[in-house]
Each structure stands twice: as C-alpha cells, then as structure tokens.
Design a protein around this nucleic acid. Structure first.
Length: 1095
RNA sequence: CCUGAAGUGGCGCAAUGGUUAGCGCACUUGCCUGAUAAGCAGGAGGUUGAUGGUUCGAGUCCAUCCUUUAGGACCA
C-alpha cells in the first residue's frame, strides 16, 4: 500500500527522513557507492563555530549541497570533508571580553598557556548549534572527520606551505606603515580593511594648522618685510598626528599663493601660503577669513627646503629615517593634490604610508609620539598619556583632538577648526577607528606573482562571470603584498627563527623557516648540541611552547622565533593541503582531490577565502585551487535591508526550518532569485512555495496513491508501450523528457534557479493542472484496463522523475516521495533517491508536434471557456459545437488529435472545421516583421499600412500564389507567404474569440435535449456533493430520491442511467416529497428536496 | 571618484532587437472540483528610472544622468 498522509506537513517529513538517513547511513552510502576514480571535488569553506549561524548560512550551504548532491546522482564520488576555522582575532577578542582582560594582560595576569587553552575551549562553543543546523537543513557534509585548523597536523601543513614560499624567496620582513587596531592590539591586513563595514562615516575634528616659516635665504621670497608673520597652512582630520609632524609636502607643479589676512581666532595679522586653486574654499565666505592681499603665484618647487618652526614642540628626539633627522622643512611629493585641504600635506612619517615614503626619501626623520595602545607617550606635554581616540570605551572620554585644536587656537597656530564628516577605516572586530602605525612585519610577495594569478584566474568558471573578471580580476591586477604578521597569541605561529642583531649597526640577520616537525626536530638536535640545551619539539605547536625553542645558525649563532602569528586567512587558504595533512600523509588522496571542481561562498569571500586559496595554489603549485566557483549574494530582509541583530530583522534559521520545513526554505531561496543576486527573504514567499509547489506535488501524489491503493497498482505490469498509451500520456512524457534535459543542463551549468523554476512550472501547470485534471476519470472510472495501467504508469514515471530532479534542492520531500513510490513498486533497488541516478533523457519520447498539439488544446479550451463566461453559460451546460477556422491542413490534423480532450474540457459536443473555401471566415493579415525587416529595411514603415490595408481577395491571392509584389517609392519587392502573418479573425454572425493566431467560434443554441443533459449534470454534481459531505466511501453504492419538477423530470427521463452511473446509484426515483433529505438549488431558480442514502 | 550588479503594475519576478510587455502574490467578480492549502475565466492596476542616440523597429544595444546595492581607490 502507498502511504497516504492526510495533509502536508513538511517539518514532519524532515524528521522522518532525517531518522531514515541516520539509521541507514545514507550520506555515507551516497559517497561510498561511487568509484574513487570518478570524483567530483568539493571544498568546504570552514565556518567559525564561535558565532551562531544565521539564515544566510542556510542559503550558502544549500547552494553547496545542491551541486554536490547533483554530481552524486550523476555518478560522481563527492567527498565533502567538513572543517572548522578555529584561529584568529574574533576568538581572541571574545575571550578577552569574557575574561575581562586586555591584550596587555596576556603573559602577565594570565599566562599565554592559559589564555590559549581558553581560546581553544571557546572556539567550538557553538559547534553543536552548527552541527544541528547542518543536519536540520539537510546539508550533507562529513562532520565526523572535519579538518580543524588548530590541530598540529594542520599547522604542520601550513608551515610546509610557508617554507615552500620562503624557499622561493616569496617571504620577507619589512617595516611599513600599516593599518593597526589599538583596540585589538594588532595590525590589520589590507583585505581586513576592505571588509564590508570597515569604512564608516564619522565626524572628526579637523584642523588647518599654521606652520611658521623661518626666514632665511630659501624662504626670503615669501617675505614682504622682515616682520611679516608668514605661515604655511596644512589640513588634517587627525590632529593627534600634529605633534609628530616633521615635514610639509607640496606638489612640485602646483601653484601656490600667499594671502594676507587677520586670524579669525586671534585677530592677529598673518600671511598664509596655500594652493591657489583652494583659496576660494577657505576665504571670502561667511565666518571665513578675509583676503587683504594676495601675492603672485609660485610653484611648489620653489618652496622646496623652506624651513618652519616645529608646531608642537615638546622636546622629543627626532628618530632617524634613512639615517637622517633633518626635520621641519618643506619637501616635494607627487601624491599631493588640490582636491581638498590646502594643497599642502602635513607629514608625519610614523602615521602615514605616503608620509613615510616621502620622509625616507628626504631624510626628514620621524616622531612616533603615540604608543601601540593608541595613546600619547608621556613626553607630549599637556597631551601626555591621553588616548587619541576612545579606544577603551571610557564614558568620560574627552577628545584629545579637540584639545589640540583649542591649544592651536590659543597659540595662534590654528587657521581653521571644524567638524568634518568623512569615511574612516575601522577595525572589523572592535568597531574602533584604526590608526596607521609603523610595524615590523612579514610579507608574502603576492604582487610579484600577480600576473600569473591573473592568468590562472581566467581559467576559472565564475558564477557570476562578472565577479571573476571584475571584482576579483581587477583586484589581482592591482595586488599588493600580503601582510602575514599578526602580533597575537592564538593562531599558527610563524615558523621563522632569526638571529638577534643590531640592525642600526648595519648587521644583517640570518633566518630560517621550518617546514615540518621532522625538520624542527633536526634543528633542535643541532641547537641542543651547540648550546648544550635539552629542548624537544613541543606537543602543541602553538605559543607559548614554540616560542621557547632556540635554534642555531650553521655558525652556531642562536636564533629566536619571530613572535608573530600568521594571518588566519592563510589558515583557510591552506585547507586543500592541510585538510589531508599533505605532504606528510595522504599523498594519493591529495592528488585526486586537488584542485576542487567546485566551491561556493558568499561574495564577501572574494578577497578572503577565494583569494587566499588562489594565492597559495598559484605560489606553491602554480595551479588553480578551484575550477568552478559560485559566489552568492546576501540575504536581506523583505524590505531589502541588511539583516542584523541590531535592527531586529534577522531571521532565526531554526525557527524558519521548524515552521515551514527545510525544503520550503531551500526551494524558496533558490527559486526566488539567482544565488548571486541578493535575496529579499520574505517568509510569505516560503509559505507560498510550500502551498503552491509542495502542496500541489503532495496532492498529486495523494491522488495517485489513493486510487493506486484501490486498484492495487504496484507497477507489477510490464510497461505499456509508449505508442499504445493515449496521447495525453505521450504528451506529459514528452514534456517530462524535455524537462529532464533542461534541468540536467541547468544543474551542470550551476544555474539552480532556472532548474527550480522549470520543475515548478512542470509540476503545477502541466502535471497537476492539466494531466491529472484531464485524466482523473481514467483513475477512478471503469475496469483495471490497459488504459488505466498506462495512466498509473505515466503518472508514476512523472513523479518518480520529479523526485529525482528536485532531490538536490529539496532533499527531504524528494526522498519521501521517492521512497513512497519505490517502496511499493520496487522499480529501483535504491533505498533513497540520493542513491539513485539522475534521470536520463529519452529522446524518442520527446515529440514537439505533440507538445504543440496540446498547447492548441489548452488555448482553444481557454477561448471557449472565455466565450462561455461572456455569455454566462455555465460549463455544466453542454453546447452543440465549436467552429474552428482552418488555415492549413496540418492545423486541423493537429487539433483533431486533441479534439476529445477539448470537447470534454469545455463540455461541447463537436468541433466543426471551417475551411477558407467556405468563404465565411474573415482573415487578417499583418507583416512578419522579422523577415520583412531584413528585406525592406528603411521602407518597412511605409509597408506597414499597405499590408494592413490588404483585403480578403489579396490575402487569398497571396495564399494561392505564395508570392506578392509590393512596391514602395518605385522600388519593387518580391514577397512570399512567409513574409506575412495571416490569421482567421472572425466568422461574421458567430460568437468569436481570438488568441494570437487562434480563433474559435461557439454555437450557443440550446436544444431541449442539451438543456436536459445540462440539468442531469447539475444533479450529478449535487449528488456527488452530498456523497462528499456525508463522507461516503468512494466505492459505496447509493440510492437517490428527488422531488418531482418539470425540468428534473426531463433530465431523469433522458439521462437517468447516466446519472446513476456517475454517482454509483442503484436507484434513482422521483417522488412527490422527500422526507429527511436536503434542499438543493439548481439553475433557473429551481429548488427541490433530495435524499441520498447508502444502499 | 572608479567598477560591477540592478531599476519593468502595490510587492516578488519573466520577456533570442520584432505584432497588443508576460507570470505569481495581494485586491475584485464569476465558474469548476469525488486530488489540491489548488485550478479556470474575467476586472482593476504600466509613459519598462530619466533624457538623448543607433535601428525600419528598443524593456533589450550605445551615451549621459538619477536611484538602489555590492565592491574598489582615496581619506593629508
């Protein structure tokens, strides 16, 4: 017996199927049953389990799951090793917050050992939640043997990769100005700075400071007289960098002027120097300075070497830059523009990349008056020990930038102070503004291989393509070196040991990069021998244990580990190798699992995981790491707003799954918009998907199962040959095979949205709404004949194929359907649809002629129903005939093939074909734009009215001769029938409707006989309704008594047997009054009593 | 500032350069139903973001602009 559920409840199906999968270990079987020689390689981008999963993870993982399941059904072995991203700043910060400590406390109030233990404990905090989501959403990934980035084996593989790069000369150490987060206590990489949300709009206090020019030979041209107070003005949005100013940079070709004015704050006369282009920005407006006099212009080059007095002098020693400390003078820089500010750049080489560069070139020295915690050192006068931004969330924080500005104003050093709104980078974890800071770091020379990375990228199939060529390709073209260093504790230690030397004295350090535990052991042995130590390889490769290891150079010089960790993004980019502990183990496994055929993540990973995978594979293996990549968009709320906890519009994934089921969510997400478009997640859409698609399919099954159980159909008979099945069967099977072909291609092309939309349309529009509706009688009427068996087989075939086509997207319902069918029919040996093969196309079953014929049937039926509606003729009232104008023999042949379907559908007795020779069909003619456009070109416009004007005789002539001579502006054209669209438009005197080239006319004359039959059908309907409300069994026999009425009497007299047959009545009697029955309403305002009883 | 994506009835989405721009939801009228949480027929609802251009013909191609969104550059 087929299982029948009263109503559809997807969450219950989820649970049932999950239990079945677990019990039978279906996932493992789906992998193991496929040959290792025929694999489809998928890489799982590791999530971090220290945050809770959201609804967008359901979306992203559904995409991964779909193609893995599809490829499995295509016979591929798709191993899906799960993984966990376990290192990195988010975890460290979470731990710090929990313990109530800051970075400075680590190694003091808490040992690194204890701290890291705590990180390790925290990192898997929500693993259970993640695993639960993975299971509940039906995402198949190997959770038993995941790779974990903190494990020694994983770290060893990462070390190996680093050593490969080191040996290729791709690693180097350098001091650079880098984005640095004082709040997090670490430098940030450029891709971290480029994370969404890193740049935030903020209002900062900006200041234009006045730097007093020293009068000497170089600056003499700036002075009109000896007492003139000449100042260079420069703008900054970070006044805290002003104490560290050591130079001013001007553009060599930019034109500058000197303007005499009175300072608005002090009212003292002053002459300021600035770019001419920007004068109007600072002068002449409300509350702005007044121009008292303006000098001739001079170019920036003339200012080169002009000296000025230090703005904020607190007696700090100038640090050397390129061996020199010649500070407080004007230098030249090409990066200076006149787009904003004053055209003169305040230069603090410790806090800006450009500043550093220009400072080093000119040997101007540097002042680094801010420490790594983001606060002034204790030698900065009134500003000593104050945080330059509110890094500590102090409630009573007073902005030191404001105080600096006030100080400048009071000391006649400020030209302008104002709030300025701009975009400033913030640390993606702490949400605090970053600052640029000189840091010693290890870099990967990514820029040196960017051409190769660019070339290899061209071989990758990106979905969508624009992400690959645009966002990713452009990024590769302008690639910067990759800053690997992180001065933190919980992560992969940099496996580089280095001698301690005095670099200032010109000594050069030696270093060594360790690529394996074995190598480390050898080096330790060597060091132990040389230094008389008793060191061993630590059991745990993390800090602090690894930090204690001292190695030696070949000369016996001690080398100490570079204390940095490496960027976590390197961890995840290493997963193709490290997940297998390559090259130390699993060499074969790796070879068959590299590169990946397919990966998928959010588009935000373009510069994250997608990049690190690509970079490492290119640099170490000179290969791509993945061949196909789907980058999916964001999941937004129904209004198109980003989901966030702060807005309270985040959808709770577990709730969504439990309310409507995993499949409805998955199907909705995939069918509503393409994966790479942002999805506006609307719960109403999920409900609609559930009702429309799953509801319809469920009911189709329920219908089938109900009657198949009655007839005991188990698909035990041989297949009825296709040509012996009625054409409606052939038709739906033709459509089905067309569908299989299309959907297979869509999945293969990573186009899941197209696949779901096609499946959906087939199920709802064709299978349910046409095939089943028209075939209902075949299932419940009459003997267990070949026709009935054909109907069962056909519907079965469709549903089984649908279960397979939909299985990648809706794995639960698909399996439920497949199992329900197959467990009774035993057609296939598989216990689950996910072990079955994707359906093959039967090309012989595809019959486009037939598909067109059925389309005619559907359209003609629609037209007739629409005519009935217009005349208020209910469908139960039979009509005599339809007139159908025929344009060519093929058409009438096509329609004749589906005549019975049409007649039954619209309740009409006959179709009469009207050929044009009868002369009663009026035709219309229109130009065929496609062909005529090519022939006529510019004369097209003139031709349209000429053609529309053609009369019935002209049309007949064109049809007869297959040619027509058209002349426009004296130019003649030889046209053929194909250049026109001729259609029957009207049959004068009849009720006519058109749809495109189709035209039907309806005979609405009602004879007594037709009226009686109409009434008979009304009676059938009322009696059937009675059966239904009385809850009779579908097979119960009944007897019926009706009150006498003229109209009813005629109907019973002529169609009594028909009525009895339809409603399974043994007895149908007309009586004067009915006792205990019901009153029924019939057309023409007849109402009478009726009694329906079991017989 | 630059780049990509998008802009089509109230909402969500379609439409190889070709006749009257379709479908679903929601609204509304009627119908059908011994599978349907459905379906059918009708009604109302559109200057396809704007302006130019190419073309016989533009929702579609080009240019400029506007808006949304995601990135990039810069941020002295």
């Amino acid at each position: 017996m087929y299982k029948i559920e009263k109503s559809l409840h997807l969450p219950s199906i989820d649970k049932e199927i999950l239990a079945f999968w677990a019990e039978q270990d279906v996932f493992a079987k789906s992998v193991n049953q496929r040959s290792e020689d025929n694999s489809f390689v998928f890489y799982e981008g590791p999530p971090s389990a220290n945050g809770k999963p959201g609804i967008h993870h359901v979306m992203a993982r559904a995409i991964k799951d779909i193609f893995c399941r599809y490829q499995t059904m295509k016979g591929k072995r798709v191993e899906r090793k799960g993984g966990w991203d376990t290192h990195g700043l988010p975890i460290e910060l979470a731990v710090e917050k929990e313990l109530g400590i800051t970075k400075e406390d680590i190694g003091k109030s808490i040992s690194v050992d204890e701290y890291n233990a705590k990180c390790k404990e925290t990192v898997m905090r929500y693993k259970d939640l993640w695993d639960d989501l993975t299971i509940k959403m039906g995402y198949w990934v190997d959770l038993e043997n995941p790779y974990v980035t903190y494990e020694n084996e994983y770290i060893e593989s990462v070390w190996w990769l680093l050593s490969q790069m080191y040996n290729k000369g791709l690693l180097y150490k350098g001091l650079t100005i880098q984005p640095y987060s004082p709040a997090a206590g670490t430098g940030l990489s450029s891709h971290e700075l480029n994370m969404p949300g890193a740049y935030q709009d903020v209002k900062d206090t900006s200041a234009v400071a006045m730097f007093k020019v020293t009068k000497n030979e170089t600056s003499d041209f700036l002075f009109d007289d000896a007492d003139e107070d000449v100042r260079i003005i420069a703008w900054t949005t970070t006044p805290w960098t002003l104490p560290s100013n050591t130079a001013l940079t001007v553009g060599p070709k930019i034109k500058y002027v000197k303007i005499k004015t009175n300072n608005v704050y002090t009212n003292l006369p002053v002459s300021v120097v600035m770019a001419e282009d920007l004068v109007s920005k600072w002068f002449g407006g409300k509350k702005q300075h007044e121009i008292l006099a303006k000098s001739d212009t001079f170019i920036g080059k003339q200012l080169d070497g002009v000296r000025y007095e230090q703005l904020l002098a607190f007696g700090n020693e100038i640090e050397e830059l390129n061996g020199k400390t010649d500070a407080f003078r004007i230098v030249l820089g090409n990066f200076v523009t006149t787009e904003s500010g004053t055209g003169i750049v305040h230069t603090a080489p410790s806090f800006g990349a450009d500043d550093r560069k220009v400072g080093a070139e000119n040997g101007i020295g540097a002042l680094t008056l801010v420490d790594k915690q983001g606060k002034f050192k204790d030698s900065v006068g009134p500003f000593s020990n104050r945080y330059v931004k509110n890094y500590k969330d102090e409630e009573d924080y007073v902005d030191v930038n404001v105080d600096i500005s006030i100080y400048l104003k009071q000391n006649n050093q400020a030209f302008n102070v104002a709030k300025y709104a701009h975009n400033y980078p913030h640390c993606w974890r702490t949400d605090k503004p970053i600052l640029y800071y000189p840091l010693d770091s290890w870099f990967v020379k990514a820029a040196s291989v960017k051409e190769r990375m660019y070339e290899l990228n061209k071989t990758i199939n990106w979905k969508p393509a624009s992400t690959g060529t645009g966002r990713f390709g452009k990024w590769l073209e302008n690639l910067q070196d990759w800053n690997l260093s992180r001065t933190r504790y919980w992560g992969v230690p940099l496996p580089i040991w280095r001698t301690k030397v005095n670099e200032d004295a010109g000594e050069v350090a030696q270093d060594k990069c360790i690529g394996s535990i074995e190598e480390l052991q050898k080096e330790i042995d060597k060091a132990n021998a040389a230094l008389g130590k008793n060191q061993a390889v630590p059991k745990d490769l993390h800090r602090p244990y690894i930090d204690d290891i001292v190695l030696v150079t070949d000369d016996g010089e001690p080398m100490y580990r570079e204390l940095d960790l490496i960027d976590v993004w390197f961890d995840s980019g290493s997963m193709p190798y490290a997940q297998w502990h390559y090259p130390f183990e699993n060499q074969d496994k790796f070879k068959t699992n590299f590169p990946a055929d397919f990966i998928a993540e959010g588009v935000d990973q373009t510069r994250g995981w997608f990049y690190t995978l690509h970079a490492i594979a290119t640099m170490v293996f000179d290969q791509v790491a993945f061949k196909n990549v789907v980058s999916n968009g964001l999941v937004l709320d129904k209004f198109g707003k980003k989901m966030s906890k702060r807005w309270g519009n985040a959808v709770e994934p577990f709730e969504a799954l439990e309310t409507h089921g995993a499949d409805a969510n998955r199907w909705y997400m995939i069918s509503a918009s393409q994966p790479w478009d942002n999805l506006k997640y609307d719960i109403d859409g999920v409900v609609e998907t559930r009702n429309k698609f799953f509801g319809t399919l469920f009911n189709t099954y329920k219908f089938y199962a109900g009657y198949a159980n009655i007839d005991n159909f188990k698909y035990s008979e041989k297949n009825v040959p296709l040509e012996e099945r009625p054409q409606i069967d052939q038709w739906i099977l033709s459509l089905l095979n067309s569908l299989i072909k299309d959907v297979n291609q869509d999945y293969a092309d990573y186009e899941p949205t197209a696949a779901t939309r096609k499946i959906q349309s087939f199920v709802m529009d064709h299978l349910s709404n046409w095939y089943v509706r028209l075939c209902r009688r075949r299932f419940w009427k009459g003997e267990y004949s070949q026709d009935k068996i054909a109907a069962y087989q056909t519907l079965y075939t469709c549903m089984e194929a649908i279960s397979k086509l939909m299985a990648p997207v809706a794995p639960f319902f698909a399996d439920w359907l497949y199992k329900n069918l197959n467990e009774v029919s035993k057609q296939e040996k598989h216990i689950s649809v996910h072990l079955a093969s994707f359906p093959r196309v039967s090309h012989v079953a595809i019959n486009k002629d037939l598909e067109q014929r059925m389309e005619y049937a559907q359209r003609i039926s629609s037209l007739v129903l629409s005519l009935r509606k217009k005349e208020s003729l209910r469908v139960r009232q039979p009509l005599q005939k339809i007139l159908l104008p025929v344009l060519d023999a093929a058409f009438s042949q096509q329609v004749d093939g589906v005549k019975d379907l049409i007649l039954a559908e619209v309740n009409v007795k006959d179709i009469e074909y009207v050929t044009d020779t009868s002369g009663i069909v009026k035709k219309s003619i229109k130009p065929n734009f496609k062909t005529l456009g090519r022939i006529l070109g510019k004369n097209m416009k003139a031709a349209i009215p000429l053609i529309n004007k053609l009369g019935q005789e002209d049309i007949a002539q064109i049809e007869a001769d297959n040619s027509y001579k058209l002349s426009i502006d004296g130019q003649g054209y030889e046209l053929t029938l194909a250049d026109f669209v001729i259609s029957a438009e009207d049959i004068p005197g009849w009720l006519v409707a058109n749809d495109g080239d189709l035209t039907v006319a309806l005979d609405i004359t009602l004879t007594d006989d037709l009226k009686a039959e109409g009434m008979a059908r009304e009676l059938v309907n009322r009696i059937q309704n009675a059966r239904k409300t009385k809850d009779f069994n579908v097979t119960d026999r009944i007897k019926v008594a009706l009150e006498k009425h003229d109209l009813v009497t005629a109907a019973v007299a002529s169609f009594g047997d028909y009525i009895k047959n339809e409603v399974l009545a043994d007895d149908l009697t007309l009586v004067e009054t009915v006792a205990g029955g019901e009153v029924i309403e019939l057309p023409e305002e007849v109402s009478l009593g009726m009694l329906v009883e079991l017989n």
